[in-house]
């Protein structure tokens, strides 16, 4: 499923993504197109709470595509934290 929230600013990219996740058929991924940089922080946060992992790809200047996929199995926050601590540089 694809969701185009370009032109929207906070908090709408995050709110509309959460709505779309509610309608997402099982085993499908959600592609969100946004041109609002703060959404790169708000969307992954809300997605992770709902068990989705997020990839971010820059499409062109000021535009990003976020891909939300259901994480394998239930999320274990401790495991995730451990994995992060092994990688010193998180990047964007």
């Amino acid at each position: 499923m694809k969701l185009d929230v370009r032109g929207e600013i906070c908090p709408y990219p995050m709110m509309r993504t959460v709505d779309a996740l509610g309608k997402l058929p099982p085993n499908e991924e959600l592609e969100v197109l946004t041109d609002h940089a703060p959404a790169l922080a708000t969307i992954p946060w809300e997605a992770s709470k709902r068990g989705y992992a997020v990839d971010v790809e820059k499409v062109r200047s000021g535009e990003w595509k976020l891909t939300l996929r259901k994480a394998q199995g239930p999320l274990d926050p401790m495991a995730v934290v451990q994995e992060i601590s092994q990688k010193t540089d998180m990047g964007g």
Partner: peptide
């Protein structure tokens, strides 16, 4: 209010 904070790791640098 916000629920558990879970972060996904970045791609290895």
């Amino acid at each position: 209010r916000a629920g558990p904070e879970v972060r996904f790791p970045g791609q290895p640098q």
